[in-house]
């Protein structure tokens, strides 16, 4: 799925989301229309409270929009039943979170292999692939460690390996560097960039980490639940100055 003329892997049409907080209504998204092409590295930027994470949840089919439509691979997510939705989350999308969200009681390899177990792989197959993915993120020798025995950066690497388990078309990252120090954050960013270049995975990342801009093909700026502006790579070079 690389090259020009790639199809839309994600398409949002006039998506709104309203949360009810007691008597008050909070408009987290006020009509977002967005197209994301296959193989793209896209960052969603914005201050906290701008609706970034809500948008992230919409793209990842983790929450239902109040109105509007979300298409993943041109399939309307609202039309999917629970089973198809689970299938989508298992096979199509890999999730990475700010808080890593590894399962604390499982070892690194168990965390990485869980999506493959859900996908119905046999033991030999998922163990092989799990080890291969841990090797890819540089943690093969720590496969028996539990999350609590790993540093933040290492936990996020395990999360990246887990996100790749079923060769998803999309990797969704919600503030992937938010809980990491500068260098570790950069390592994770370049790991994601490598994946996008080598595997043609679409990377969509909600962030307010400026380092992310350097590697993004496109940056979507969110403000007050609306798209403020969308910037392409060429334009970014001007605004940021130095790009890798």
């Amino acid at each position: 799925m690389s090259g020009n003329g790639a199809h839309n892997v994600v398409r949002l049409v006039d998506v709104t989301k309203v949360f009810r907080m007691g008597q008050e209504e909070v408009h987290a998204l006020r009509g977002v229309t967005l197209e994301i092409k296959a193989g793209e590295y896209m960052s969603i930027m914005g201050p906290s409270g701008s609706g970034k994470s809500t948008l992230f949840n919409m793209i990842g089919a983790l929450d239902k929009p109040t109105s509007g439509r979300v298409f993943i691979d041109e399939v309307d997510v609202a039309q999917l039943d629970a089973y198809e939705l689970a299938w989508l989350r298992c096979r199509k999308i890999g999730y990475i979170f700010q808080t890593f969200n590894l399962i604390q009681v499982m070892t690194a390899i168990e965390n990485v292999t869980l999506p493959m177990i859900f996908a119905g792989m046999g033991r030999d197959e998922y163990m092989d692939k799990g080890m291969e993915l841990l090797r890819l993120v540089g943690l093969a020798e720590r496969f028996q460690h539990k999350p609590a025995e790993l540093s933040g950066g290492q936990q996020q690497r395990v999360a990246v390996a887990r996100a790749l388990a079923n060769d998803p078309a999309i990797i969704l990252a919600d503030e992937p560097t938010g809980n990491l120090d500068l260098t570790t954050g950069e390592e994770i960013i370049s790991l994601l960039k490598e994946l996008s270049q080598q595997r043609g995975v679409t990377i969509i990342s909600a962030t307010h980490d400026i380092k992310m801009i350097n590697v993004s093909d496109r940056v979507v700026w969110i403000r007050d639940g609306r798209i403020d502006r969308i910037e392409d790579r060429e334009k970014l070079q001007v605004s940021v100055g130095q790009v890798l």
Binding site: A82, Y83, R89, C90, N101, L102, I103, L114, F118
Partner: peptide
């Protein structure tokens, strides 16, 4: 709850 949410993100059915 967080663990359950994670499981569901990985494709777990109810």
């Amino acid at each position: 709850f967080r663990e359950i949410g994670t499981l569901k993100c990985l494709g777990a059915l109810d």
